[in-house]
Design a protein around this nucleic acid. Structure first.
Lengths: 196, 196
DNA sequence: GTCTATATTTCGATAGAC
DNA sequence: GTCTATCGAAATATAGAC
């Protein structure tokens, strides 16, 4: 069902479609799952697991480069995001269980972006007055919005353009860093949270 | 039907729902419209007209300020975008007529952003190496993605955060402008497209 | 466990009275 | 123009044979 959930959404996917695609009868279906909702929960969890599983970037490069590499990661846009598209389906949003699974997925992504962004700021490659949590949502939003634009135009290009625009902004605000060459083996420049 | 199209989507909205909401019988419905699809086209056009109708910003302020003001415009996020949400509905995307109406709407928005961005670059308030068309898609994407995040969390906050993050980036890349005080009444600094 | 009926409701639309 | 009655198909699920 995972594929059908992604392509057709929850409300528009019937058990009949699932059974046809899986080449099973109704008996099998209702033996293994209590109904459409039960199966959808399983399929949703699987889609989210796959959507959140990403190849890690080169751990050695600066955080700001890892941000840009992650933003620029190829994403087939015209199919839409298997997680984000769920939010348009009222039957999903009105279901507390499904909605919380989706909200958790986006929270996980936001946390990843925020950590990376905070790293980049700490490294001195992004201005210190930027808020990592806000920027994290901006990154998520550009990707999610990119999917929407790609589907609206039936083309990958608008999504790529949106991400290019964001990366160009990132490059424009990029700062030169903490000058690690001048970093002495003793105390570095005094930072605030020195303890813990 | 416009409201139902926004809230429930195309596929999930039945003529029965529409007739109940409008307090009319089936006879009236099928007398004025040839069917569900016909009515949806009308409702979609109306929603897009309303979605594209915006109060103009203060014409006297710099273009970069008008961009930020337009980005920060209040948008009730948890209902989603009445245009963007259509792209999740396969029945809409697979219909060439509806899809082209939606694609045109996004093209109109992109054009508006691109014009504003080009103005800001010409005024010297944004770096000249930024691409107005790419940035225009970035702006659209942050807004569309903001809607997705707001619906995923059932809260306005993620959308506001995403837009705050983008505006903070804009402020960081903002440049001091063309120094209009030094602008002489004769020829200004030579620009490329002086003819036409 | 998997299959084939069957039940109930809704969908999208048509027919025909008024 | 607007109404009620009705149709054929699909959605979601249950019943019961094998």
């Amino acid at each position: 069902m995972a594929d059908l959930l992604w392509d057709r959404g929850y409300a528009a996917t019937s058990p009949r479609d699932v059974m046809a695609k899986a080449h099973v009868g109704q008996g099998s279906f209702y033996h293994h799952f209590s109904g459409k909702h039960d199966l959808a929960i399983s399929a949703l969890r699987q889609n989210i697991f796959e959507g959140l599983t990403e190849a890690p970037e080169d751990a050695g490069s600066p955080a700001v480069d890892r941000i840009e590499a992650r933003l620029a990661r190829p994403r087939p846009g015209t199919r839409g995001c298997r997680i984000g598209r769920m939010t348009s389906d009222p039957a999903v949003v009105e279901d507390p269980e499904m909605l919380s699974i989706i909200a958790d997925a986006f929270s996980t992504m936001r946390q990843r972006w925020a950590t990376l962004t905070a790293e980049a700021i700490d490294a001195g490659n992004l201005p210190g007055d930027l808020d990592p949590d806000d920027l994290a949502q901006t990154f998520s939003a550009v990707i999610q919005g990119g999917y929407v634009l790609a589907r609206a135009h039936g083309s990958q290009e608008p999504m790529d353009a949106a991400i290019r625009g964001l990366i160009a902004l990132m490059e424009s605000v990029r700062t030169s860093g903490n000058h690690p060459i001048r970093r002495a083996p003793t105390q570095t420049t005094p930072q605030s949270k020195e303890h813990s």
